[in-house]
Design a protein around this nucleic acid. Structure first.
Lengths: 190, 190
DNA sequence: GTCTATAGCCGGATAGAC
DNA sequence: GTCTATCCGGCTATAGAC
């Protein structure tokens, strides 16, 4: 904390975060991260024991990032419907990235589903944050199947990401995001 | 055609098909395929120039496989609604695989979205077959936005695959497949 | 804390005997 | 057509100087 090394550590995690998203975890090498940060490969092992440890740090960073985003949605309004809409609005600004590389959360989980169980459960943590938050909103709206609704909404968004990315279809992505917003707006207030 | 080598070629493609699904394309090595088939690594280059060529052969095989499946759905009934239901029913038998490794079509596209454009467009071919077929069914039901409907249905199924696999949630998968069937049943007949 | 050098392994791809 | 031996490069990870 506060030492010089924390800067390097943070820079490694931030570069790895981007690269894991755009190229995938397995296809990202230490050399890639070294090139992006200017920090030599061998130095990484001062901060992380293994590549898996870097992934864990990236997931931790993403969890914190999403917690902040969701907190921001909470702070905007007390209406759960508008909170969900605020979250959907934030996705709008990620459209280009989604078309290029899919959803950062979903694509990582999908990739690591074919890897060790340890990496799978680690990558799942980001989804769990969002799922829990969505569940709270549906719960506040009076749904007694709030968690099921959260899963449905998560799945809907993931499907849109996968298909719009696979077909590189910007129109479909736009139309689907609008559809999600319309659906949220139409939610009964318990 | 008909020569001895076609057997080996087919066995390589079939093994690669499974491995690309369960481990991913990038994480599958020639050694893995060699081990599964008993065919030595070096021999592969008699049948394929590069690893990418093996992927192309795998995609071609999957396209043919899905064409047969869809043809089978067509042959069962003339009612487009029932054809779509028949397709959804076939997914039911893949539940265990989906929980383990996601949708074979979607997960391959998601992985290769982070690779070269050549691999991306190749992997997309399987989706295109299904999309076109779904579009035909919606068209026959009288929808003038048949292709949009096909994309929506594709996305819905993909979302279910990604989320049920990420959370290893069999109940969600079952519930969502039932939901898809209910939705198909409720489709207006033009 | 930072960096260089390198070990050790495994990847895709090739050459050439049979 | 089939198989063995091997090249070359990139990978993660380590050792040790500074």
């Amino acid at each position: 904390m506060g030492t010089k090394g924390d800067n390097n550590r943070t820079r490694i995690v931030e570069a790895a975060d981007q690269l894991f998203y755009k190229r995938g975890y397995n296809q990202t090498s230490f050399s890639d991260i070294a090139e992006m940060t200017g920090i030599p490969r061998g130095n990484f092992y001062y901060y992380f024991k293994t590549k898996d440890d870097i992934l864990a740090a990236v997931v931790d960073a993403r969890v914190k990032q999403y917690q902040q985003v969701l907190q921001q949605c909470d702070s905007m309004t007390d209406d759960p419907r508008e909170r969900l809409l605020a979250f959907a609005d934030m996705l709008d600004s990620s459209k280009n990235s989604i078309l290029e590389a899919g959803c950062p959360v979903g694509s990582l989980c999908s990739e690591l589903a074919k890897d060790t169980e340890a990496l799978q459960s680690k990558s799942r943590e980001v989804f769990e944050i969002i799922r829990e938050w969505m569940g709270k909103q549906f719960s506040a709206l009076g749904y007694d199947d709030a968690d099921d609704r959260a899963m449905d909404l998560l799945a809907r968004m993931q499907g849109v990401s996968v298909i719009s990315c696979a077909f590189k279809d910007n129109d479909f992505l736009q139309r689907s995001l609008d559809g999600v917003r319309t659906w949220i707006n139409s939610l009964a207030s318990s």
